[in-house]
Amino acid sequence: MPSKNSINRPKLTTNVRSKQQKLARKRDQRERAGHFNQARSADGSRSGEAKSVALDIYFGKEDSTTSRDQSHRGGLTNKTLSKKRAQKIERNLKYAQQRRLLTDVQAGLENKADDDEMNVDGGNKALLRKQEIEQSKNKKNNMSLIREALWNSIEDAQSQGLTLATGQGTTLGGPFFP
């Protein structure tokens, strides 16, 4: 290819390219400045929350950068998530979960220590946390839970409905052909 300073340099292509780059830079700037974001008062606004495109894609949320058009919410995005990045997020989530459990245990211990005092809310909190932990434990086997429930209701003889046979029964019609 001819150099930029050559007399025969392809002016058109360079011009077009520089224009594209210029536009891209501008768009990038606007995006970084947050001009494309929703108004803070909008329903779908996520202002104030931590923003990560990778996490958005991982959780299948709508992309914060492409949400300016209301009709294409959660639709197409040109952002991609690499496999490596996804694995990282997965691992981090696992660690976060473990950390939370640890802090829960600690908090429980502290609360126990404080239990002598009038901390009623704290006790409730701990209870709630406990339930939460249980739920998260069971979340994986949601399907098995449903199966369990269905098994229960199948084997449950009492919920047989309200069939009533007093001997009288029901008679419709009569000895003729309608």
Binding site: M1, P2, S3, N5, S6, N8, P10
Partner: peptide
């Protein structure tokens, strides 16, 4: 084709000074 044509005018002399410039 454009590339081929353009390549004709590339100056491969390392220390060449373009008089016009």
């Amino acid at each position: 084709r454009e590339d081929k044509r353009a390549a004709k005018f590339v100056n491969n002399q390392p220390y060449y000074r373009d008089q016009l410039l």
